[in-house]
Amino acid sequence: MSMIELEVTQLTKRFGRRRVFGDVSFALKPGQSLAVTGPNGSGKSTLLRLLTGLSLPTAGKVIYTEDGKTLGFEHYRRKVAMVAPYLALYGALTAGENLHFLARVDGRKVSDTDIEAVLHKVGLDGRGGDYVGAYSSGMQQRLKYAAAMLREPEVLLVDEPSANLDDTGKKAVFDIIAAYRKQAIVVIATNEKEEYSLADGICQLGG
């Protein structure tokens, strides 16, 4: 089975004259994980966005390879999933409709059983028919994990893993991240010390 690998080389990002971070380098293989830490404004979320390919670095490279071949955006996009507080799902759709839609535009056919299974994993049993607009921020955060799991990602990017979550929610998402750490590349951006243990290594930004 082919495995995706991630290599980040001397990554630098500037917004105008302000340098957010510079010369960040690391390489990750499946089963390896990294916690990106640093003070507010040090570029943790920016770094995760660069890893999605939806933002371009000022200098340096983000390269995904598989069997030694460099993957283009359209190839690695399908293998990457992201969970972040600033990502939003569709408030006018139910949770089930959101998950069906996101899977379908991604070219995946999922059954109601699949949907129920991921909702169960994030503790949203029986809430698939509720409108996301009526969800609390914590429930929306859980639903984002469900959407990410449905993609069966080989690379999981998580910004502030436990944002908006209660203790039960935290436990559920920590379990999910722990499961992905065994098989996928996991990068989390966090300032919470208890979340450092969700990764094998630490990348310190802004100092």
């Binding site: 006018a92 759709l93 839609f101 379908r104 991604d106 070219g107 056919k109 299974a117 069966e152």
Partner: peptide
């Protein structure tokens, strides 16, 4: 987990359907 793949046209139809459902509910 996913049980199959869908065609390009079906993906486009999913976007149209999502837009229509959202529009019908929010106007």
């Amino acid at each position: 987990m996913p049980t199959g793949s869908v065609s390009w046209a079906a993906k486009v139809a999913a976007v149209v359907r999502k837009e229509l459902v959202s529009e019908f509910r929010t106007r």
